[in-house]
Design a protein around this nucleic acid. Sequence first.
DNA 1: TTGAAAGCGTTACCAG
DNA 2: CTGGTAACGCTTTCAA
Lengths: 330, 330
Amino acid sequence: MKKNMTIKELSKMLGVSPSTISKALNDSYEISEETKAKVQEAARLYNYKPNKLAVNLKSGKTSTIGVVLPSIKNFFLSRVLRGIENVIANTEYNIIISITNESYDKEVNSMQTLSNGLVDAIIVAVSEETQIKQNFSHIKEANNQVPVLMFDRIVDDIDCDKVLIDDYESIYNVVKQLTALDKKKIVLASTISNLSVAKLRIKGYVESVEKTHLPVLIEGSEEEIEAKALHLMKSEEVDAFVAIDEEATLACFRAGKKQQLLDDGTLSLVGYARRRIAEHLTPSLTTIDQHGKRVGSTSADLLLERLKKPGKKSESVVINATVQKRSTTQ
Amino acid sequence: MKKNMTIKELSKMLGVSPSTISKALNDSYEISEETKAKVQEAARLYNYKPNKLAVNLKSGKTSTIGVVLPSIKNFFLSRVLRGIENVIANTEYNIIISITNESYDKEVNSMQTLSNGLVDAIIVAVSEETQIKQNFSHIKEANNQVPVLMFDRIVDDIDCDKVLIDDYESIYNVVKQLTALDKKKIVLASTISNLSVAKLRIKGYVESVEKTHLPVLIEGSEEEIEAKALHLMKSEEVDAFVAIDEEATLACFRAGKKQQLLDDGTLSLVGYARRRIAEHLTPSLTTIDQHGKRVGSTSADLLLERLKKPGKKSESVVINATVQKRSTTQ
DNA sequence: TTGAAAGCGTTACCAG
DNA sequence: CTGGTAACGCTTTCAA
């Protein structure tokens, strides 16, 4: 690991001043073609690479956007990331990603590290632990240093751009559709009840279902959901499940399979799940599509605008989820 | 977006020198408790945050490790990432991730940006396009600036630490096991034939199967694989598929379902796929587990060692893949 | 056309 | 215990 070549060293080797080197490398009009050639040749030869740290410090710009995500195995979040990347790829900006694994401490650390000079702006979905703690000062602080955009897991009282999904409405309507299919008892399952988006989805379910019957919620870990769902299926006349995350969805699916209620359509199931899984299940699964890629591209667009117009008023964009009908809803 | 507070500004407001501020903030023994208190109080009040760029430039250290991945939807790669994170989380280091989306240009860009001051070391799996191009000078150059560790998709003639999987042997043995199950015609399917790891797997297949019959390879996109598999199933007496990536695996699965050869066990299928999918399919899928998390943690361990002992000789560690037997192999 | 000097924000050394 | 100065590697006036 040889030490990196610097402008200073080059300048000594070539017997010209550092400023000349800098200008020559940046192809400045002030420098003669002759010296330019000489310098660029030497730079190649000695494998000179400008130190980004120094350049960024000097310019006060990093041309980098930070993306802080709670998890990478969450299919929705990785779709969002794709959307962000697609947009940013066509700009001068680079992306660096930081994963918090749903941990508050990691999130605080990431937001601080990134906002203190490493990036020009941040896109973030807050972690589960943060939403439990309800402590968002690190987001606010970061937002004072660089523009922050929040998506999906929003914090209302932070003044920044936001991209969210109509969680309340989408579940409200799903339940309405199930009711229209003459489903008499609709259960909601969730392993993510701590999240703001879950609360909205649950609210949508409760307010939609209570016209028909009392709400029934099953919550907990994936295994707990499976057990509870199984128990319900055995003891009561439930005929539909709405599951608001992939784990809950698969737990309900397994329970339905075990009770042999799914294959003949006795039981309906609508859930959140990646297409790849939904399509390959037997029977294939009706899902709610959150259009993660669109959430991502919208977020990136919004942030780029803000970077152009720092004074701009904060904006909130809502993306509508849609139902992908497959075989688990007849 | 108010301008960030700096040591200089603080020093003016408090009427003490910048060096005193710096020392006070770093809790130096040279500073009286009194001034320390005063300075730290003011820092909190004015929301002072040290500029990372300046700190890193000064110290010549970033305490950050860069991870360059070709894709995030690849389940193996995201497992590896988890493994890396688990190890790094317990150290002084942070992680920043850069996704190349299998693009050579993005990879070159990422490696350069990261290696020129932004990180202390890099973990990388090269992109598909890079392996097609066979141009690795950007990896070599980065390796001259900071320690680079390659995993999975290795380049032989680069002198750096490596973590790889026994791709040849694992497929060789899978085919042998299928032969032992009295499978008479075993087909290999791949959508990733450009990758070095694919070449090894294919070699393992070819050299294992050719004792029994001529190798049959189907390659191309996921859709092409499905069509070709379907065609083979209709026209010939094939009784087993080995699929060396998740797309190919699911393509073969769908073909097998369509021909109704899977449910009764007429056809065997072994493939690479995430557990979550493999378990929920009907019939459940026998898979090859590459132990991504272990690959990740081993990589991180190795890199941390190197960071401690820069002079250390390069090391290559092989992780053994294992077969997860489920219902598609009787 | 070239170079000296200042400065980005921080820390470390050495005086005082 | 405190402060001035230099330095990290770079760019950008401004002067020569």
